[in-house]
Amino acid sequence: MARRAALVSAPAPAPAPRRRIGVVLVDALPVVRAGLRLLIEDRPDLEVLAEVGDGEGALDQLARTRRSRVVVLVGLGLSGERDAYWVIRTVRERFPSHAILAMGANAEPAAISRALFLGADGFVDKNLDPVEFLQALRAAARGEMVLAAPPSVALGAVARTLDRRRELEVRLTEREREVLEVAAEGLTARQIADRLGVRERTVTTHLARIYGKLGVGNRLSAIRVAARSGLVSVGATE
């Protein structure tokens, strides 16, 4: 009853204030997070929902958020087992409607390509002018693909890396990719075996098959192919 009355007598609803874009900041460096928070909180249409310095924490924060328009900013410098790429992949799986924006400074095309492949909706360079940075953030929230700041030539390089990654996905089995990823950390066959919970013999067999498929003679060359394809990141990305 009360409900019906309300329906009848309610005045025409005022235009709903546009929901603000919620931003979750994930970066290893506290100073970067603080700077971004200052920059973002100054804007009426943006709001920092959380800022975290580790992958696990980022996922915890996101699980608590009940917002629809969310942009997750992920600094590629986040390292460790739950690194930036893990965050990107996991957020993409668990929160398919959130926008994910990777950010880095002087990132290699392979790092950008890897972020995009794993689910990022774009990349922004930390060297960007603050106003353009915010524009990139808003564009990502609108569902646009963003690639801000790296020179346009990098666009071609990123595309080429993606092509190579695709080829690698077709040629190698999931297990072989796993072995190669761990091998790229510089581990011995024995250590790889321990990490993946298989026998050393199995790892060497996988490695031999990987070399064959990639047409290389040794582990270093295999790692180089993997790095060029953005399957692994060798060295710092920031």
């Binding site: 995009l116 909706d121 774009g122 646009e144 666009l155 595309a159 993606l162 695709r166």
Partner: peptide, 16 residues
């Protein structure tokens, strides 16, 4: 071109 790159990345992910 950037939009196209986004499509390529999504397709590559879906394919994988």
């Amino acid at each position: 071109a950037i939009e196209e790159l986004g499509r390529t990345a999504r397709q590559a992910r879906e394919g994988a």
